[in-house]
Nucleic acid binder design. Structure first.
Lengths: 341, 341
DNA sequence: CTGAAAGCGCTTACAG
DNA sequence: CTGAAAGCGCTTACAG
């Protein structure tokens, strides 16, 4: 067995042309039963497998999807990665991973890199892209989907959960439970996700004729969220805190407990995402569930649709609603039952 | 701007040959200052970027490293992924991700897939490979490194932490603190990692003239670990439990607390990995730190070494020792101070 | 159904 | 330093 077997070598051994070999390995191409047999036999004996890169070059389809991701400490993203990878793998695609640097410039460079690999599509999770890059991708005919992030006037498909509705649900639940000093540690205000959750939250509060006692930007960071919690404690005496995502909510709970406060009794905490850890005993976090499966499905089908039909590049936004998962980190409204779920 | 710009188009606009364009974009190739200028200008105007796939075909180097990973719920792996990706990105390589199915057959198929992409190397994290596949990879000249997993007589490079030493440290610490009914919920016994941690642990116990009161296989699963905890509680009355990894240790702690047991006082719990969450207030887990940075470095350099020098494929095992991180989930030995760290 | 041939977009000896 | 040409390993009209 030598290093690399080519279709030409298989052809020779099978006594057919190289084209015939190619056809046998091309789904949908026609070859007689006899040819197929001869070729398969020779291929097996030689250990032949088609070179995907060569195939990509001529077909113009690499079957690679570029994924830009950051913030892997937040359990949400590994879960997304896993589900996305599984879904794509089933369709014969694979994920080329690019971990994102923090600057916008850095991201652009990374995406350029990605495009150099002739990816068939790009999924950008929790990062923003410059309009310059938007243009390049569009002109290169590469579909881009923004995952869990929106961008004004972007030409991309955007898949998010319905953050506004989610924020509203939280406010309503807190109000129903009779909280009167409600604070918010928001997701990073530079992200649509952070802004929208806050927006829905405030809107519902407003409609109920009240308002939050304080809103601090948690920057999606554990450390910042902890500092915010202390500030809330010393300056505002909140009886409930809505936190922009679960990752920060865990930090808030840790801080509250360290200060001797009983979470769910003295102060209610609600998060957003419903990462697996939220259900673990140590936190038992009431939170809005991001419908990851449906978000992944929407992402994959947007990608496939564009790949199959490059002309119709309809920019659009899918905001999928997710339920409030009630656990014990927040006081429940009187007479509340699980029936709603 | 059209969809895809080729070097030939740049050449035409710059008034040079296509080879000249290629040279300008090939590090180390020679071109006159004048040529470089003309080409760069034309390339910028056209928005040209070399096609990595075409380059890969002729050079035989795809600059893609295949990563096979499973078990992404365990925070350890996302961290590894992130660090590995960053390190590789700096060297101009990128990771093509394959999420592993559970069966050995499945894994083999996945690796075959990987090889079809002409990856320059493969990193298999927490999975085992068949010897058949080992042979294929070796014959294709593709370096494989097993990450956090060893395999008897494997021809691969293996990078792990020193699991035996780690297990020993845990036993010693528990003994020093005066525990007398020490139990073990081990990592999956089908994995070298699980077996070795247990082995070191038992060896140290043995040398001290004692033995663990029970050893149960936690299978790296949260649910199984919880069931094991209950069984330990009802049948063995342990005063300490060494758990095969942090991910399971969290489940053990949750279960203990649900039974009203004070962790760190009534029963000590020690994990293995030191994932970020281990330091969070809710768990405050005493654990062995896996030296991820050094493990990633070792992985990357093994890969690069083989890529630069395909002939020398020295199979070897690197087991890097990590420290015991003392927190509050386990009772400390009398007079214990942090000095050791 | 099948083979010969062109071509995907590059790199790299080979001559100059 | 530079250009013409071969070749990387395939797919896909084009004729038969």
């Amino acid at each position: 067995m030598k290093l690399k077997i080519t279709s030409a070598e298989v052809a020779e051994r099978a006594g057919v042309s190289q084209s015939a070999v190619s056809r046998v390995f091309t789904p949908g191409a026609s070859a007689s039963k006899k040819t197929v047999e001869k070729v398969r036999k020779a291929a097996d004996e030689l250990g032949y497998r088609p070179n995907v890169l060569a195939r990509a070059m001529v077909s113009g389809r690499s079957r690679i999807i570029g994924l830009v991701v950051a913030y892997l400490e937040n359990q949400f993203y590994p879960i997304v990665l896993e589900k996305l990878s599984n879904a794509l793998q089933e369709l014969g695609y694979h994920i080329l991973i690019f971990t994102a640097p923090n600057s916008a410039d850095g991201i652009d460079a990374v995406i350029q890199d990605l495009m150099d690999y002739q990816v068939d599509g790009i999924v950008a999770a929790s990062v923003s892209l410059s309009s310059d890059l938007a243009e390049r991708a569009t002109q290169a005919g590469i579909p881009v989907v923004l995952f869990n992030r929106g961008q004004d006037n972007s030409p991309f498909v955007e898949v998010t959960s319905d953050n506004i509705a989610g924020g509203r649900q939280v406010a309503q639940f807190l109000l129903d439970a009779g909280h009167e000093r409600i604070a918010h540690i928001s997701g990073w205000q530079g992200s649509s996700t952070g802004r929208e959750r806050q927006q829905g939250f405030n809107a519902a509060l407003d409609e109920a004729g009240t308002t939050s006692i304080a809103t601090l930007d948690g920057m999606y960071s554990r450390d910042v969220a902890m500092a915010c919690t202390d500030r809330l404690l010393s300056d505002y005496s909140p009886d409930a805190i809505f936190v922009g995502n679960d990752h920060m909510a865990f930090a808030v709970i840790d801080t509250l407990r360290a200060r001797g406060i009983e979470v769910g009794k003295e102060i209610s905490v609600i998060g957003y995402d419903d990462v697996p850890m939220a259900s673990w005993g140590a936190y038992d976090l009431t939170t809005i569930r991001q419908p990851v499966n449906r978000m992944v499905d929407a992402t994959v089908s947007a990608l496939m649709q564009h790949i199959d039909n490059p002309n119709i590049a309809a920019p659009r936004r899918e905001a999928i609603e997710g339920p409030l998962i009630v656990r014990r980190s927040a006081r429940k409204p009187k007479g509340w039952t699980n029936e709603g779920i």
